[in-house]
Write a protein that binds this DNA or RNA. Structure first.
Length: 491
RNA sequence: GGCGCAUUCGUCUAGGGGCCUAGGACGCUGGCCUCUCACGCCGGUAACACGGGUUCGAAUCCCGUAUGCGCUACCA
């Protein structure tokens, strides 16, 4: 691994700076996680900043969702959220200084002219960069004013020259200024662009380390240029590898569950999700994989962040999540399950508080069998509805009607004499009955389970019976027996 | 097209010249356990992109090639 890689050891000031244009995706969540981890690890500060300079696409809903998800994940911030849309004066001040020093210039090119400039460069197999005209005659200026043409302000990239990033993950990365165009810093409507706002904010907020996705690396020299023009020294940078979908392209909504919100809705818990996210692009020793959030804080280091992108493996995330659920304290699991089922509306849809009781009682029977909380419904959903035997399960019973009747009847008869109806008592009784009847466990127990749950897949036979309680269990037994008897009679 | 980055089992990864006939995990697979679905346990499968160097010795260092990805906006 990239052993002597620089490490952050002093308390740092890091930031997570999403643009509120959608829900928080896995990639962004991991970036937030890494920043948060290193802040907590070093006793530094984690700052939240919303980059909403794109007023068209930024929405308050998205912002609220991002804050909510971050909180859900357990990633609390020490400062902010700052909003770039509320910091116009800060940027205006920076722009004034840039103008005063001649670091930026007004450019009046039309879209067509810019397009032609880039096309021309392409034709010559050159970098498609834009260099605006810096001098205009008074007549031209007057004409533009008359036409209502407003300039954008471009950064005058110094030529010749180069900007070098000493990236904490990738090492030295050099960009020749020939390949950096005179990027726009102020739009024609006077608003700041991302490269200006991000640079100004990182300086102004005293950010010491910028940890962000690799997709930002080509913006970095631009931002460094702005910072230096402002007389500031850029922070340290760590560009982390992208998270890919199965097709090796950057993970996005196209790949299915790509937003944290969806994972949450699918019944994933925050801590194990963070655990999985942390393992994408970072490893501790190549062997240890289970980390609680506090353990991650303890173990995390930027020096062990990988340089190459990683494909997100949903299956592995699920497996790890299942293990986490199995290891939870029973009470914690039950509460998490109840909370989840409340949030999905399952509780309300099944009678409210009485349903909570059923969930609580059945939780132990599903703990250890599910990887995601949403799977509870498949295993125990039948508990909340009247008996309805699904077709495939009915086929099992009717494959040998006579045998089913005998076995189910035998089970019922034995159970009816039970003084108490606990899992243990039911188990002992059924096991005994199975031997008495000389049946194989499978041939005997499967029909019992189907008779009362109606499902091919459900909680275990003994648990299911005990969960239903004597009366309900017997009534279901009898209903199933009656149906089978009908078939037997007509056959 | 330009610039940048990356490249170890299908996937996540360990690996800083000999400890590597490449380790762990998921997947897949064989078996055990077993009332369904799962869990758990035991075993197997499978990788250093390619080509040149450097070196007694390279997955590890250098160069090149290939491939992939990112960026290439008055989006962030």
């Amino acid at each position: 691994m990239p052993p002597h890689r620089p490490e952050i050891t002093e308390p740092c000031r890091v930031r997570f700076a999403p643009s509120p244009t959608g829900s928080l995706h896995v990639g962004g969540a991991r970036t937030a996680l890494f920043n948060w981890l290193i802040a907590r690890r070093t006793g530094g500060r984690f700052i939240l900043r919303l980059e909403d300079t794109d007023r068209e696409r930024s929405t308050p809903e998205s912002e609220a969702e991002i804050l909510r998800v971050l909180t859900w994940m357990g990633l609390d911030w020490d400062e902010g959220p700052y909003r770039q849309s509320e910091r116009d004066d800060v940027y205006a001040d920076a722009v004034e200084r840039l103008k005063a020093s001649g670091a930026v210039y007004a450019a009046y090119e039309t879209d067509e002219e810019l397009e032609e400039q880039r096309a021309e460069a392409r034709r010559n197999k050159q970098a498609p960069v834009v260099r605006g005209r810096r001098e205009y005659s008074d007549e031209e200026l007057a004409r533009f004013a008359e036409e209502g043409r407003r300039p954008v302000w471009r950064f005058a990239v110094p030529l010749p020259g180069e900007t070098v990033i000493e990236d904490m993950v990738r090492g030295t990365v050099t960009f020749g200024h020939d390949n950096i165009e005179d990027f726009v810093v102020v739009r024609s409507d006077g608003s700041p662009t991302y490269n200006l706002a991000a640079a100004v904010d990182d300086v102004e907020m005293g950010i010491t380390h910028v940890i962000r996705g690799e997709d930002h690396i080509s913006n970095t020299p631009k931002q460094m240029l702005v910072m230096r023009a402002l007389g500031a020294e850029p922070p340290a940078y760590a560009h982390i590898p992208l998270i890919l979908g199965p097709d090796k392209k950057r993970l996005s909504k196209r790949h299915g569950a790509a937003s944290v919100e969806e994972f949450e809705a699918d019944g994933f818990l925050a801590e194990p999700l963070c655990n999985s996210l942390a393992l994408l692009g970072w490893s501790f020793d190549g062997k240890t994989e289970r980390f609680s959030l506090p353990e991650l804080v303890e173990a995390f280091s930027v020096g062990r962040i990988s340089k190459s992108p990683s494909v997100f493996d949903l299956r592995k995330t699920e497996v790890m999540h299942g293990r986490y659920l199995r290891m939870m304290e029973p009470e914690a699991f039950t509460e998490a399950l109840v909370n989840y089922l409340r949030s999905t509306g399952f509780i309300d849809a099944h009678g409210g508080e009485p349903a909570v009781e059923i969930v609580r009682r059945s939780a132990p029977a599903v703990k250890g069998k599910i990887a995601r909380l949403s799977e509870y419904v498949n295993l125990a959903g039948w508990l909340f509805e009247p008996l309805a035997i699904e077709p495939a399960a009915w086929d099992v019973l009717t494959a040998d009607v006579k045998h089913s009747i005998q076995v189910i009847g035998g089970g019922l008869g034995r159970l009816e004499s039970l003084p108490e109806f606990t899992v243990e008592a039911v188990k002992d009784a059924l096991q005994d009955q199975l031997h008495v009847m000389g049946e194989a466990a499978r041939d005997f127990l499967e029909p019992q389970r189907i008779a009362v749950t109606g499902r091919l897949v459900s909680t275990g036979t003994y648990e299911s019976l005990a969960l239903l309680g004597r009366e309900e269990a017997f009534s279901r037994y009898r209903a199933t027996l009656a149906r089978l008897a009908d078939i037997w009679a007509t056959a």
